[in-house]
């Protein structure tokens, strides 16, 4: 051929590890990723009266319900933000609840994404991870809007906002996104083989929410179990507890998070991503048959 580099593809039986070529291929489909994400954002709320408004209504409604139940009826009293001096249950709740909801939608929707896109998978080839990634990215867009609104609210409530903390917050958001995507990769392929996993996940996510200091302060658990007890150590192993606490530190309290914790989160995220990628690659080949 006259100087044109042609794509040469060798198709062979599935191997367990796609290697660097798999990532390169995913990178080469950036535009597809963008289009799939747009599609996800567009089709989700198309034909509904509120349109994109739905994506904001859901967290607002949950916030309102939890705020009434836990601050007015159950009398949960989080400590005053230090050094920010914030004293608002709703803001305190939102700093933890929004990231958790983001995580939970990434996993839930990512998990159903392969089955939901069976039509596409059975008819055209493209790196299948793109679908899971696009679903997660669409959730990320919604979450970024929500969290920006929250930052504005926190600023209006009188807390100082520092660029350094914003930067760390963004880093944490990226970590949380990758952590959720890793789990979604695992869940999405398994869901193709076991369709009822989706129902189980709803239960798991609810339990996970209550196992994470989202609607109650972690101080309550620490006081109950003892700060140095094994029980509390196990409780703190939950990566979501680390994420929620770090977000609270950054946004509500206005201080830097425990960087040892952030390191732990990065490690867990890397592990989940590697497992997710390997599992996905191993099962990817038979997707079109199983769907």
């Amino acid at each position: 051929m006259t100087g044109i580099r042609r794509t040469v593809v060798t198709i062979h039986p599935a191997g367990p590890w796609g290697g660097p070529s798999a990532l390169r291929e995913l990178l080469a489909s950036r535009e597809l990723l963008g289009n799939l994400t747009l599609r996800e954002l567009r089709s989700k709320y198309r034909g509904t009266a509120l349109g994109q408004g739905w994506s904001l209504l859901h967290p607002i409604a949950l916030l309102a319900i939890y705020a009434v139940v836990f601050s007015q009826i159950l009398r949960v009293r989080p400590a005053v933000g230090s050094p920010s001096g914030l004293h608002s249950f709703v803001l305190w709740l939102a700093t933890g609840l929004l990231p958790f909801l983001f995580f939970s939608t990434v996993v839930t929707q990512g998990m159903g994404s392969l089955v939901g896109n069976a039509n596409l998978i059975k008819k055209v080839y493209f790196p299948r991870e793109a679908i899971v990634l696009a679903t997660a990215t669409a959730c990320l867009v919604t979450f970024l809007i929500e969290y920006t609104v929250l930052h504005v609210a926190v600023g209006l409530a009188g807390a100082a906002i520092s660029p350094a903390r914003l930067l760390v917050t963004l880093l944490l958001v990226a970590l949380l996104f990758l952590f959720g995507t890793g789990l979604a990769l695992i869940g999405s392929v398994l869901n193709v083989f076991f369709r009822d996993l989706q129902h189980l996940l709803t239960l798991v996510m609810m339990a996970w929410l209550y196992a994470t200091p989202v609607i109650y302060p972690i101080a309550l658990v620490r006081a109950e179990l003892g700060a140095d007890s094994t029980g509390f150590e196990i409780y703190s192993m939950n990566p979501m507890a680390g994420f929620v606490e770090s977000f609270r530190d950054l946004v509500y309290d206005g201080r830097m998070p425990d960087f040892l914790m952030v390191g732990y989160l990065a490690l867990v995220t890397a592990m989940v991503l590697v497992i997710g990628h390997v599992l996905f690659r191993a099962l990817e080949g038979s997707l079109a048959e199983e769907l």
Partner: peptide
């Protein structure tokens, strides 16, 4: 590349477009 063979290889040179069944990959 929608299905992977159990054994053997397929080599394709260049971009591939497929029209399998009605309206491939439309949402």
């Amino acid at each position: 590349r929608i299905l992977l063979p159990n054994s053997g290889t397929i080599l394709t040179q260049g971009t591939v477009a497929s029209l399998l069944e009605l309206g491939s990959g439309f949402h």
